[in-house]
């Protein structure tokens, strides 16, 4: 796996680099890494988009303001559709999730930039946080009735233990699938991009015939880049929608 001079290593791009050390607590070392840098860039960009987009306060929005307003009302409509009126309290959270994932996904598509969401620990932390939030909100709103989520209506009593078991397992699988989906999509997409880009480099190294042969992977790389833009937006959307759907369970456990 070590990057030798004649091979492109598709895994290399996911390496965490410590930009400077902060300290060490009980064997855990904390550092400001490239992943942290890009997280902060994503935060700054998404905040700037909204802040600068709402600055003109024009009645007829310009292009930039339109983008910011679309961004806002897209998530707003999503939350209202899935969660209803009482979901208003969760709108900032869902918006932040969407903005964070979307901007880190898109930043990762720029060459030489680091993809924060291709780190399992990031997506896993976000997913765990969402599920913990669902549990906390559900228990705070409905008390022990919240566990009625695992007891569907109209199931014969002798089937109930199995159904409940399946429901509990599917509930526990949610953070796993939520985090792995985003992580896997971003990771796989970037590996595929890198592999095809590597074909171009290796074919071009063969001389003139290789130059002609490299056109194929070049087109492939362009096409996959376009696909990755779609995937980046789609996965951010899916992440936000699923967070909404899971939160709906906390608000209305009896479905």
């Amino acid at each position: 796996m070590a990057g030798t001079a004649d091979r492109v290593d598709p895994i290399h791009q996911f390496h965490i680099v410590d930009l400077f050390q902060i300290g060490q607590i009980g064997g855990m070392k904390f550092a400001f890494t490239n992943s942290a840098l890009f997280m902060l860039i994503a935060v700054a960009l998404s905040f700037l988009l909204l802040y600068a987009g709402s600055a003109p306060r024009a009645l007829v929005p310009g292009r930039f303001q339109s983008v910011a307003e679309e961004f806002y009302s897209f998530v707003h409509n999503l939350v209202r559709q899935v969660l209803g009126e009482e979901g208003k309290a969760f709108f900032p959270f869902i918006f932040c999730l969407f903005a964070f994932v979307l901007f880190t996904n898109f930043l990762g598509l720029i060459p030489y930039f680091f993809t924060v969401t291709s780190q399992l620990v990031i997506t896993g932390t976000l997913a765990l946080f969402i599920i913990l939030m669902v549990l906390v909100v559900g228990l705070a709103k409905h008390g022990l009735k919240f566990f009625g989520l695992f007891v569907p209506h109209g199931v014969p009593i002798f089937l109930l233990p199995f159904i409940s078991l399946i429901e509990i397992i599917s509930f526990l699988a949610r953070p796993v699938s939520l985090s792995l989906r985003l992580f896997g999509n971003m990771l796989a997409g970037h590996i595929v991009l890198k592999v095809f880009a590597g074909f171009i480099v290796s074919l071009a190294g063969l001389g003139f015939g290789g130059w002609i042969g490299a056109i194929g992977p070049l087109f492939m790389t362009v096409a996959i880049t376009a696909l990755e833009f779609l995937v980046a937006a789609l996965q951010a959307f899916v992440f936000a929608v699923l967070a909404c759907v899971y939160l709906k369970d906390a608000l209305h456990p009896h479905h």
Binding site: I16, K29, F30, V121
Partner: peptide
């Protein structure tokens, strides 16, 4: 790398 990533995720988010 997990501790520092989680730390910075918490800060950033």
């Amino acid at each position: 790398t997990f501790p520092s990533q989680i730390l910075w995720l918490a800060i950033a988010f």
